[in-house]
């Protein structure tokens, strides 16, 4: 099962480190990362991950990432890839 993680917020040191640390703890494999800085200081990252061998619950991992985002001022979404495929591909 694959999921898309999006992280948007004010750029700060250690965002990627902190997000990937949580993913590694859950044994979630990162397949691809794309990251850019919008309008000079907005950090935007899209990750494609494989959760096939996740250690623990998908929803717990999503909640932990969301909690990290809320604490640090990032908008973090974790969604199964199917949503985007359904909406944007025929």
């Amino acid at each position: 099962m694959r999921a898309i993680i999006t992280v948007v917020g004010k750029d700060n040191m250690g965002i990627i480190y902190n997000v990937t640390k949580i993913l590694a703890a859950y044994r979630v494999n990162i397949l691809d990362i794309s990251q850019t800085i919008l309008s000079s200081d907005i950090f935007a990252m899209i990750m494609l991950v494989n959760t096939a061998s996740i250690a623990g619950e998908f929803t717990a991992m999503a909640a932990e990432l969301k909690a990290y985002g809320e604490a640090e001022g990032y908008d973090i979404h974790v969604q199964r890839e199917d949503v985007f495929n359904a909406m944007h591909t025929l």
Binding site: T6, I46, E81, F84
Partner: peptide, 16 residues
């Protein structure tokens, strides 16, 4: 990699 365009992903997030 996913066949999805980044714009599509961000559009969905924006909609939600």
């Amino acid at each position: 990699m996913t066949k999805l365009a980044h714009n599509d992903i961000l559009e969905t997030i924006h909609m939600l």
